[in-house]
Design a protein around this nucleic acid. Structure first.
Length: 641
RNA sequence: GGGCCCGUAGCCCAGCCAGGAUAGGGCACCGGCCUUCUAAGCCGGGGGUCCGGGGUUCAAAUCCCCGCGGGCCCGCCA
């Protein structure tokens, strides 16, 4: 049991029983007092009309706790002061014994699946995927730390139109697509995809313009669109003129490239051997690029799930079969659909499935007229698989806000097909888009900032900085490796540091800002602490007992002790509420407290041996907490910086 | 047109779910601190109609209503 949890539990229990309130209600009201109030915990009592004698009883009861030194009532608040030395003794000793385990929670026999990233395998991972990935992987780590068995899964959307477009480009090129590659494979296929896409667009627009010769306004409109596409193609061609030549020859001379895309899509979905070989080969190449980027970012995926497998295995057919038997089965604008709108009227169902109150739900179309399936239909089958395969308690889909509606339809569809538990336990973890100021990102047009490029720039910057500072002391290899790690840390931290509900305006200079509220600040704090520790050898440690009373006489040291004590509560809340920002803001606060301490109160120069011992323990405890908390965000602490 | 989300200092963000003490930080700006454990640090300073207006309340950045501004969604795309 963690000390801080113990105190809170005791306080909550006393207050709850005296006020006859549910413990959860009391727990929510217990807070930290503002900084000018010299206490450790507060509880607003002004709203409860308590008799004087009841007050006295509460105060008396709380004072009996050995971890509490004082209790008072001021300005409507019940204020509690801890026994500083006892708290310090318990916390520091516990951290030093538990080490990497401090802040983790007992294993529970429940599985949570987190699906994240799931980028279409048609271009490199960009900054938008980066946010998804950083969120998803941090959730995985936070939930595992809280005791869950966690599975991370990546859904490979290989049946959509986009992959078929890439397929068209690749079949135009033949073996050249695989042999002429002169860059990282996801970037290479991303280029083929963007060029193919833009050429298709060009052909389509030209066709339309021919039909509009009599409509001047439309003609001008189309012309300007064509100009835009042409400019795009020109920009893309620069990266490989030969590639452009080959693709352009092939696509512009096709009678109907659009139907070629359709053909690829339906052949592949039906498992045609020739297309299967082509498509899988190309997808594997792109995925290997993803994997390289993800491993740089310390992101692990347990299962890579091909969407196509769900169709070939018959799981999607089974869903369609069930939908057809459903009373909600209908034709919507001539296509087969499921009237999820009908059950969306029921406020009870909406509440259970967490469907936003006013969200208007249209029927869910399940198949195209040509018989191929649609994304959400396959996602129904996939969700069932995610729950079934591991008997998961919850499935969390990390998916951008723009997909709010399809994710809601997905839950409603599962519910209406009888998978009520799955529907209720499927969580759409919503995050807002990443915006690049000045540009409109578009995978289709090949306009994006890839994670690889961002990492490269961040690493170059840290490298320059490291040379400037430690060019003499560090080897070239060390600088290389440190700069890479700093880049990863800076990127990951900046991607989870803002609440997911907020749009993230990605400005490189902000991530490159290595000052206070940034990953480098955290790493720097850790490295400073580690550096002091390194200077002390075992034999130099005094045999005297640490004097915790002396340690916490100092306000700054006590604040640090208290923060370290709170850490397990932070990991718990982060896991329960799925709030990653709790960790980032905790890390920032604890680093700040440490730096203040470090600056004002020399550790190695301490002559009082009992106090010296206690300071060392505080320092060790700080490094463990930092290390553990950074790990939960996928950031590797550095021993030097 | 309807819906979802966001709006807090020049810029970026925490606090809002569960109302309560003097609204917290970062960047930028101004001024200090390296013969002392790593100055990517520390200390101090200025800077706020908490988007606006109503309402509920002893008490509103926080809850409710009406607006305004921005983003996204409303496809036989994903």
């Amino acid at each position: 049991m963690y000390v801080y949890t113990e105190i809170i539990n005791e306080v909550v229990r006393s207050i709850a029983s005296l006020l006859s309130l549910p413990r959860e209600d009391v727990e929510k009201l217990v807070t930290d007092p503002p900084s000018h109030v010299p206490y450790d915990l507060s509880f607003p009592v002004m709203r409860f009309k308590l008799s004087e004698s009841a007050f006295q009883e509460l105060v008396r009861e709380l004072r009996m706790n050995e971890l509490i030194s004082d209790v008072s009532i001021e300005r409507g608040y019940l204020n509690i002061r801890f026994s500083r030395d006892k708290l310090a003794a318990r916390v520091l000793q516990q951290i030093i014994i538990q080490k990497e385990r401090y802040g983790s929670w007992p294993t529970r026999d429940e599985v949570i699946v987190v699906e994240h990233t799931s980028a279409n395998p048609v271009h490199p991972l960009h900054i938008g995927h980066g946010r998804n990935m950083a969120i998803g992987d941090s959730l995985v780590r936070i939930l595992a730390n809280y005791g869950y068995k966690v599975q991370s899964r990546f859904y490979i959307n290989d049946l959509g139109r986009q992959v078929a477009v890439l397929g068209l480009g690749v079949s135009c090129l033949g073996e050249k697509a695989f042999l002429d590659k002169n860059m990282k494979s996801d970037h290479w296929f991303g280029l083929i995809y963007a060029l193919t896409n833009q050429l298709l667009e060009l052909k389509r627009l030209k066709g339309e313009r021919e039909k509009s010769v009599n409509d001047t306004e439309r003609y001008i409109e189309l012309t300007s669109q064509i100009d835009e596409v042409v400019a795009n193609i020109a920009r893309l061609s620069e990266k490989s003129p030969e590639l452009f030549e080959a693709l352009s020859d092939c696509i512009m001379n096709m009678d109907n490239p659009e139907s070629a895309v359709q053909l690829i899509m339906s052949k592949y979905e039906r498992g045609d051997a020739r297309y299967k070989e082509l498509m899988r080969r190309m997808i594997t190449e792109v995925l290997s690029g993803f994997k390289e980027t993800m491993s740089k970012l310390r992101v692990n995926i347990d299962y890579w799930d091909y969407e196509s497998e769900l169709v070939w295995s018959g799981e999607v057919d089974e869903i369609i079969h069930n939908i057809r038997k459903s009373p909600l089965y209908t034709l919507y604008k001539g296509a087969e659909a499921l009237s999820v709108d009908k059950i969306a009227i029921d406020p009870e169902i909406r509440r259970k499935l967490r469907i936003p109150e006013g969200l208007e739900i249209p029927p869910l179309v399940i198949r195209r007229s040509d018989g191929t399936t649609l994304y959400v239909t396959r996602d129904i089958a996939y969700t069932i698989r995610k729950f079934r395969e591991s008997n998961a308690k919850k499935v969390i889909n990390v998916v951008a806000k723009e997909q709010l509606l399809p994710q809601a339809q997905l839950r409603l569809a599962l519910y209406s097909l009888g998978y009520t538990q799955y529907a209720e336990n499927l969580i759409h973890y919503v995050y807002e888009m990443v915006i690049l100021p000045g540009t409109k990102m578009s995978g289709r047009a090949g306009i994006y900032v890839s994670l690889d490029d961002i990492l490269k720039e961040l690493a170059a910057l840290s490298k320059a900085e490291l040379y400037r500072r430690y060019g003499q002391q560090l080897s070239k290899e060390e600088i290389e490796s440190y700069s890479q790690k700093i880049a990863v840390a800076a990127l990951r931290y900046s991607l989870v540091n803002v609440e997911p509900d907020k749009q993230l305006v990605f400005k490189e200079e902000d991530v490159l800002n290595f000052e206070r509220n940034s990953a480098p600040y955290l790493l720097y704090s850790y490295a400073r602490a580690y550096n002091v520790l390194k200077k002390i050898r075992e034999e130099e440690l005094p045999r005297e007992q640490a004097n915790y009373a002396k340690l916490v006489e100092d306000e700054i040291r006590y604040r640090l002790v208290k923060l370290l004590a709170k850490y397990p509560l932070v990991t718990k809340k982060a896991a329960e509420e799925l709030r990653i920002e709790y960790l980032t803001s905790y890390l920032w606060r604890v680093s700040q407290e440490f730096n203040q301490w470090y600056d004002r109160d020399p550790i190695l120069k301490e002559t009082d041996k009992e106090l010296f011992k206690a300071k060392i323990e505080l320092l060790i405890a700080f490094t463990y907490v930092m290390k553990n908390a950074l790990q939960l965000l996928g950031i590797e602490p550095l021993e030097r910086l």
